[in-house]
Design a protein around this nucleic acid. Structure first.
Lengths: 163, 163
DNA sequence: TCGTTATAATAACGGGCGTTATAATATCTC
DNA sequence: GAGATATTATAACGCCCGTTATTATAACGA
């Protein structure tokens, strides 16, 4: 069964890599009783306390309903709480609960390990090019999906050094 | 609400971009009555008729059970059939049905449009660097998940021109 | 040849995610 | 101020996907 590494399309590569990294990160998250998606939410929320679900959804590049469901589970786990907004009764303000902080601290180191792992054998300049390039791909597709996220400068090899 | 483009992590970028591209591709696939995952399966199967579910799973970088479920649906849609293997009664050999071909042909053009879309504003050399880099990331994570896929040469900026 | 071990496929379970539709609440406009 | 319009969150539905466990069949070893 011939099975060469087979010069794969960037499109397939993006999907496969994300799924595989997701599986890996998910296994780590589960050692602390959460999923990868919940872990991401916690990270974003730690950086921006008091966000609404809609704001958090935009930051995570998912639909608001997805954040709502994640918060349901995180609330059950005692890691996040929903607080009513003073001005607008449609809005929940999200807050980490104390139980979240030690778990997040432990996982932070594991996250650095993942970054190291996926970067193996790739030099820093290439990594920078990839980061800038992926940011542009994300901007392109976001725009096509009619959100747009600004940041639309062209990415070239020479941009790389500046990133 | 300050919301800068915010210098995003490659790890987050990979996940977000894949999801967003997935949503976009899925919308296109649904105009032909299938999902993005089913579309991918059909493409791989068209390139390699007669694969077993396990082989196809490896090619798609998913678990065999995932392929089994996708084939269930594609069989119901009349796009794929399962044929018994002559030698080994555990194995199904997969085959596209005639109905699949015109649909696949129509979708091929839409796929090229997606590639054009996501590549906008990124020069060819950078795209090549990204492709080689992502292939390495995939190899790194595959190896860590204990499959490994060979192809473990270092990727550098100079590699780029050769790709 | 018989029993152990390996392998392909599948079932059950649970979490992720978008789409469409709906309820509650704000906001805007006449 | 009242009705039209917009916005935040949520429910229902369906598909994606991995983990663990099970069944059927092959392959291997004494």
């Amino acid at each position: 069964m011939a099975n060469y590494p087979h010069e794969e399309d960037l499109l397939f590569l993006i999907g496969d890599t994300a799924r595989l990294v997701g599986v890996y990160a998910d296994r780590i998250a589960r050692t602390r009783g959460m999923s990868k998606a919940q872990w991401v939410l916690l990270i974003k929320l730690a950086q921006n306390p008091g966000l609404s679900q809609k704001d958090l959804a935009q930051m995570m590049a998912v639909e608001p309903i997805t954040v709502g469901r994640l918060v349901d589970r995180l609330e059950n786990s005692g890691l996040v709480e929903r607080l009513p907004d003073e001005q607008d009764r449609r809005i929940w303000r999200l807050q980490l609960l104390p139980a979240a902080e030690p778990v997040l601290a432990e996982l932070a180191e594991r996250r650095r390990e993942i970054v190291t792992l996926i970067s193996e054998g790739i030099d820093a300049a290439t990594l920078a090019t990839m980061q800038a390039g992926m940011a542009r791909v994300k901007a392109n597709i976001s725009h096509a999906l009619k959100g747009g996220d600004g940041a639309a400068q062209a990415i070239t090899n020479s941009t790389k050094a500046a990133v």
